[in-house]
Amino acid sequence: MDEIVEGIRWINSNNKVNVAVITGEGRAFMAGADIKEYGSQTAEEFDAFQEKGMQLYDAIEHASKPWIAAVNGFALGGGFEIALSCDMIVASEDAKMGLPEVFLSLIPGGGGTQRLIQKIGVNRVKEMLFLGGQYDAKTLNNWGVVNAIFPSDNFLSQAMNYAGKLSRRPQQSIAQLKRLVNLSMTATPFEERINNEARTVKKLFLHEEAQQAIQSFIKKSEK
């Protein structure tokens, strides 16, 4: 977890990276915590483990650049919570996702109860949490959790192509869009959020990059 958090922070600070993709290796994106290790933790070790997880999720969610979870297999428990902290999720056709903590008389501890509700309706969230089942990519795509599904045999290349399209969008616009969408899910009053949007679009409009893009569009439309 230390290495993953360090890697995420390094990517976030690298100005040459426009879009980040996180994926797994082998049969799983991440199958969740090692239960044997998890079960042997003291209260202090459990607190430290939870804190490290929070650092991981926050580093993705609060990054200015977009993160895509490329779920190549099983994404369960904390693995699914990593995917939920990302801005988008793409999945292989045989991917399975879920939050099975209820089977251990526990609940998700990495934001699963809060981030999932931001993506789908409350009834679906309660079903996933209460039953603890595994859901396939097609179901989660229909529910709005998964953005796209790609064949398993060339999944990673398809996921990178998907990310490549996003990387060609103006990065300052993408950063502000992510910030404003995330702001919409906070307790910030609606009027303040709308005013924030208005200030941001003006700032972007006055920027040289937007002015050049606008003038270029006008010249093309006049041909």
Score class of each variant (00 low, 15 high):
50 Q>L: 11
201 V>R: 15
166 L>E: 01
192 E>F: 02
182 N>S: 11
50 Q>S: 10
202 K>L: 13
86 C>R: 08
218 I>D: 08
197 E>V: 15
192 E>H: 10
154 N>S: 12
130 F>R: 14
89 I>K: 04
157 S>Y: 00
1 M>A: 05
184 S>E: 06
122 V>K: 15
218 I>C: 07
28 A>W: 04
179 R>S: 10
56 L>K: 14
33 A>F: 06
116 L>K: 09
143 W>I: 09
9 R>F: 01
167 S>F: 01
143 W>R: 08
207 H>R: 13
194 I>H: 08
205 F>H: 14
42 T>A: 03
116 L>Y: 06
134 Q>C: 05
149 I>A: 01
73 G>E: 10
176 Q>R: 13
63 A>F: 01
30 M>F: 02
41 Q>A: 03
75 A>P: 06
123 N>M: 08
79 G>I: 06
94 D>H: 11
41 Q>H: 08
46 F>N: 08
91 A>H: 04
184 S>L: 04
145 V>K: 04
53 G>H: 07
126 K>Q: 11
68 I>T: 08
133 G>V: 13
124 R>F: 00
184 S>A: 15
123 N>A: 00
1 M>E: 02
180 L>I: 01
77 G>T: 12
39 G>M: 03
23 T>G: 03
48 A>P: 09
108 P>I: 13
72 N>I: 08
212 Q>S: 14
175 A>E: 15
44 E>V: 15
60 I>E: 04
146 V>P: 05
45 E>K: 13
170 P>K: 09
171 Q>Y: 05
187 A>R: 14
43 A>H: 07
79 G>S: 00
185 M>W: 03
163 A>M: 05
204 L>K: 09
160 M>K: 14
171 Q>E: 01
86 C>L: 07
166 L>V: 13
155 F>H: 02
204 L>N: 05
212 Q>R: 14
163 A>I: 06
219 K>I: 13
210 A>N: 15
180 L>W: 09
83 A>S: 06
50 Q>N: 11
23 T>W: 07
100 P>K: 04
191 E>W: 09
192 E>M: 10
24 G>H: 06
19 V>A: 02
75 A>D: 01
164 G>P: 05
164 G>R: 03
34 D>C: 03
65 K>E: 03
119 K>W: 04
5 V>H: 00
39 G>V: 05
56 L>D: 06
100 P>M: 05
30 M>L: 08
222 E>I: 15
217 F>C: 14
126 K>E: 04
45 E>R: 12
169 R>Q: 12
115 R>Q: 05
119 K>L: 05
152 S>Y: 06
85 S>N: 05
146 V>T: 11
63 A>Q: 04
